[in-house]
Design a protein around this nucleic acid. Structure first.
Length: 403
RNA sequence: UCCGGCGUAGCUCAAUGGUAGAGCGUCUGGCUGUUAACCAGAAUGUUACAGGUUCGAGCCCUGUCGCCGGAGCCA
């Protein structure tokens, strides 16, 4: 090892490690995580390839928005303004009309100004699209795929999961069918008295836990001062550092928790579920949970309006358990070009910019649907780590593009 | 864009408004078939940046920048 190798065996902060990501990659933790990532990607490809899907690569440079305009990355294309793709879905739908069962798998880009543990500006997404499938069938597909991924990771990456300290038993419990609830039901759960009481009780317990940790930390600091030099002192320092980290982390979490409870209680029908809401809902289950039938105005223009309730669309989100939240978003697609054009207008998009997409309906269409799975969020969940930035070799976040 | 936190030695972090420190790393010497060695000694700072308050600012105030977490939005 070179004398001035920057990464020592001692503790380092995230910022320092990320600045040296090219070398940090050589450490055991990144290796374990990225091996799991590889298994996840291979499991996904195998799953679709073995189930009659054809891989169709979709463009990365695109002329317009696939989801929403605010999160587009502009690119200068010989003087013309193009964007980096947010989803392959719209294009994929045209391939679906040709080949029936297709999927695309590639990087996607969203200029969301979100600095959270669940967000990257560049992330990988797999998107299947199935002809003649209704939303229930698409959900079954998602369920089967998740089970296939979990099984593959459990069989190929035991050692990596153990190294990462992952509670493997929680993954072994994953089996279909996953629970299903509607958006409206999720809202009732969030706004309800029982959940409020439960959350507040948990908050009190965690506050007590924080106090206990602080007391322990103070005691450890006193011990450190009187510790003998040498290995005893080092060990005690390690202990103090661990406790400080635990205290800081819990303290920060407890600060936002009351807000999250308040947000859950103030759930208003018509707004999308917030990240904290998803966390709360997903914590109530040991399995991934489907949340379906979101309000039309909160969701994308291409989702099929429910025949039984025009206020909602035939969509679903899949929330990973243990508080990990959304890893999949999917839906049946609207077939009526009039309805799509109307939704576009309502969301400030111009139907004429999507003429080719509307052509897919105009020149004959069949019921179809699909979903998108975020690879990094899935890996973070499977590995039991808190931040997605470690699940990709060189993460791109709002504040980091180096190295 | 908004809210909160942080920014001190190469790294991890201390320092009731009163002389900037520790551990690790580095360097020097010693000891030892060492495995995160050990012992003794040494060097190392524009306390992110720019102003302000004060007899005195790492600490208080204002602004800027950077990072972390969260909200909105999302996979």
């Amino acid at each position: 090892m070179a004398k001035d190798y920057p990464i020592s065996r001692k503790a380092h902060g995230v910022d320092f490690l990320m600045d040296h990501r090219h070398l940090w990659l050589r450490s055991q933790r990144p290796v374990a995580l990225l091996r799991v990532r590889h298994t996840v990607i291979r499991a996904i490809r195998n799953f679709f390839d073995e189930n009659g899907f054809t891989l169709m690569d979709m463009p990365i440079l695109v002329p317009g928005a696939g989801e929403d305009r605010q999160s587009l990355f502009p690119v200068d294309y010989f003087g013309e303004k193009l964007f980096l793709t947010q989803t392959g879905q719209l294009y994929l739908e045209s391939a679906c009309m040709a080949m029936g069962k297709v999927y695309c798998f590639g990087p996607t880009f969203r200029a969301e100004k979100s600095k959270t543990r669940r967000h990257l500006t560049e992330f990988w997404m797999v998107e299947p699209e199935v002809a003649f499938a209704d939303v229930a069938e698409v959900m079954r597909l998602a369920e089967d795929m998740i089970c296939a991924i979990v099984a593959e990771v459990l069989s190929k990456n035991r050692a990596d999961l153990d190294f990462l300290g992952r509670d493997v038993a929680a993954l072994e419990k994953i089996m279909k069918p996953f629970p299903r609830m509607t958006y409206t039901e999720a809202g009732e759960l969030l706004r309800g008295e029982p959940i409020r009481r439960k959350l507040e009780q948990e908050l009190e317990q965690d506050k007590a836990r924080l106090q206990a940790l602080i007391t322990e930390l103070e005691a450890a600091e006193v011990t450190l001062k009187t510790a003998k030099k040498g290995w005893q002192q080092e060990k005690q320092e390690e202990r103090v550092r661990e406790l400080r980290e635990a205290v800081g982390e819990l303290d920060q979490e407890l600060k936002v928790r009351p807000d999250h409870i308040r947000l859950a209680q103030s759930f208003k029908w018509g707004e999308d579920l917030g990240g904290s809401d998803e966390t709360i809902v997903s914590r109530q289950f040991e399995q991934p949970v489907f949340v379906t039938d979101y309000p039309r105005e909160a969701k994308a223009f291409y989702m099929k309006v429910s025949p039984t309730d025009p206020r909602v669309v035939k969509n679903f989100d899949l929330l990973a358990p243990e508080g990990y939240g959304e890893i999949i978003g999917g839906s049946q697609r609207e077939e009526d070009p009039e309805v799509i054009a109307e939704s576009m207008t309502a969301k400030g998009l111009r139907p004429e910019d999507y003429a080719w997409y509307l052509d897919l309906r105009r020149y004959g269409s069949v019921p179809h649907g699909g979903f998108g799975l975020g690879v990094e969020r899935t890996v973070a969940w499977l590995c039991g780590i808190k931040h997605v930035r470690e699940t990709i070799p060189f993460p791109r976040t709002m504040g980091r593009v180096y190295p």
